[in-house]
Design a protein around this nucleic acid. Sequence first.
DNA 1: TAAACTTTTTAGATTAGTCTAAAAATATTT
DNA 2: AAATATTTTTAGACTAATCTAAAAAGTTTA
Lengths: 220, 220
Amino acid sequence: MYSFTEENYLKAIYKLQEQSSESINTNAIAIVIQTKAASVTDMIKKLSEKKLLNYEKYKGVVLTELGKKVAIETVRKHRLWETFLHNKLNFTWDAVHDIAEQLEHIQSQELIDKLDDFLGFPSHDPHGDPIPGKNGEMKESNFVVLSDLREGELGIISGVVNHSSLFLKHLESNELILGKRILVQVIVAFDNSFQVKIEGKKILQLSNEVARNILVKKMK
Amino acid sequence: MYSFTEENYLKAIYKLQEQSSESINTNAIAIVIQTKAASVTDMIKKLSEKKLLNYEKYKGVVLTELGKKVAIETVRKHRLWETFLHNKLNFTWDAVHDIAEQLEHIQSQELIDKLDDFLGFPSHDPHGDPIPGKNGEMKESNFVVLSDLREGELGIISGVVNHSSLFLKHLESNELILGKRILVQVIVAFDNSFQVKIEGKKILQLSNEVARNILVKKMK
DNA sequence: TAAACTTTTTAGATTAGTCTAAAAATATTT
DNA sequence: AAATATTTTTAGACTAATCTAAAAAGTTTA
């Protein structure tokens, strides 16, 4: 239906739109897609003709309902594939993204619905991002950042704010992986760093920067 | 590494080569790839420059060792994905091929090795075709066509000779599906049709044409 | 072996997506 | 508000893969 490239543009614009509320300008898209502004202008024209977005010269773009729908479907595919790769094939946190970038463009509605079923209709992907349902609806997630916990509080690692490979690899090498229980023992007043205990054994010292980028499900 | 299109050409040539032993001519490739001879000539030149096949004008092509390796890897990916779709996602026999045609081009060695592991290192795909191993080796299969069985003999449905969607749908609608036990009750001398019993209950009359296209694992 | 037919290749064009360089529009600074 | 800087668009070109139509090579037939 839509090409690999078209889907990528729609997904990029959708993500920019989620952050900003204003119409999205050419350069911002070029940076996300890793291409040149001239290429973006060309593609925008094409997507505009296909009624996937509204475009006014020099004024940026806004997705139409159709464009948004296609973008959300692509996000759904991406996150379901990430979940598959992590939960079923045991890929580490940092490895799933690049492969899911390819898998998200496989064309088959039946495939994605059966995959969803096979995975048990997960509500969040391995990075803690919500997975849109068949009709595009997303569950509000109740995750908080680790830095929001107080001394003595317990959380379950559920995702990340920063998705960079560097950060994810850092977490994994410190056993800070999805599903682990994490207890805040001490918050150091001087630098707001966190002393935490992972699943009853390992004690770690986390900078506030790290604590601000880990999502946890707060336990009572 | 190699493009979607390059992999498809190599796979097509590999399959033709398996059947014929002679060098493969342009038109034969055009028919398999569903394109025009002129397009095949263009692509052949490109693959030849990349040392994936040996090409002499007007004399057809032969895959190099490298070309064969890439083709076999693609076949491996295709058959592993078909197995995944059938065994894990419950796709019917006839539905797996088209989706696997897309999935086989996902680039990630790690993905395919982990998938292989997840599936339990299967030796055959749902059509009874052998799945090449990590180093390209294929297990000799001991399947026979149903029409080779004699009256009173028992087999387990293990694959098909004819892969057409029409045939596969016909089998599925008659409960002739992978893994079912099939007992030959009577072979009609007049037309060599087969009266068979599926898993203790259903009795079916199969034409010789059908019996020649079902692969079974013969039981003692 | 020459004529007729078939297959393959070449030449030139097309489409999707990209690029560079220059022009045009918009935004910012003074 | 003019000058300057930034952003965006246009123009023209490139690559990969394809196509049609015509030319060339190879094969079959009489």
